[in-house]
């Protein structure tokens, strides 16, 4: 990823750390970064279904975090920084897997439109909460996995990890409006897919009752 390339270039010009500096770096790394290992692993497992790959992505994330730790500003959000690296690791992995050159194809979906909230409204009115209670995790996992990669990552970081719009905008290097738009669209897609699944399983929605 571009971030990594930039970091690599900067790193090459730096003198090596002294033994004492290295010792302190390790202590800081253990205290500030390892406590987030569980969160990153859970997130990674949600992103990729193969456990070994999920763990490899987290491992690479921490190794890079250690390597480039002198770029991390003390007192800033270590968790957000780690997730930013993990996001890049995931993109690299995903790109290799799908052989897609970029994710820019999804950007066209991100234009703010007035229709967005109208669609959410429509679906919200047509759904019954109880229906979702009948669905098991597999359906939801499949629905999440079917989201475009950018939407999936943004949605999971917001809903699973509770990052704010501002933090997400920094992680993805996009405006806050894009984050808001991605979240709305991701949830809207999930609602549509889960509703379609529920109807396929024979559950009735308000839509059926209304004859729409």
């Amino acid at each position: 990823m571009e971030d990594d390339i930039a970091l690599e270039e900067d790193f090459e010009g730096k003198p090596p750390l002294s033994e004492e500096e290295n010792r302190l770096r390790k202590i800081r790394f253990e205290q500030e970064f390892y406590p987030h290992l569980g969160s990153l692993l859970r997130f990674s497992k949600t992103l990729v279904k193969e456990e070994d790959i999920a763990k490899d992505l987290v491992q690479e994330t921490f190794i890079k975090a250690f390597r480039f730790m002198h770029y991390f500003e003390e007192g800033t959000n270590a968790k957000a920084w780690l997730f930013k690296i993990l996001k890049n690791e995931f993109y690299s992995f995903y790109r290799k897997k799908t052989k897609e050159a970029t994710f820019s194809g999804y950007e066209s979906l991100e234009e703010e439109t007035g229709e967005e909230d109208g669609l959410i409204s429509q679906h919200a009115q047509n759904l019954s909460t109880e229906i979702f209670g009948q669905l098991i995790g597999d359906e939801m996992t499949m629905a999440i996995n079917a989201l475009p990669a950018d939407y999936r990552m943004t949605f999971l970081l917001a809903d699973l990890e509770g990052f704010s719009y501002e933090e997400l905008a920094a992680i993805f290097k996009v405006p806050i409006g894009t984050i808001r738009s991605r979240l709305h669209r991701a949830r809207n897609i999930l609602k549509k897919q889960l509703t379609a699944y529920a109807r396929g399983m024979g559950f009735k929605t308000d839509e059926d009752h209304d004859g729409l």
Partner: peptide, 24 residues
């Protein structure tokens, strides 16, 4: 309710202390 459901389901993904310490 939809958000609670999603959060609940996502948190069901198992991550044990053992695998965290092994990975560390």
């Amino acid at each position: 309710a939809f958000r609670s459901f999603l959060a609940k389901k996502m948190n069901e993904i198992p991550v044990s202390d053992r695998e965290i310490s092994e990975l560390q």
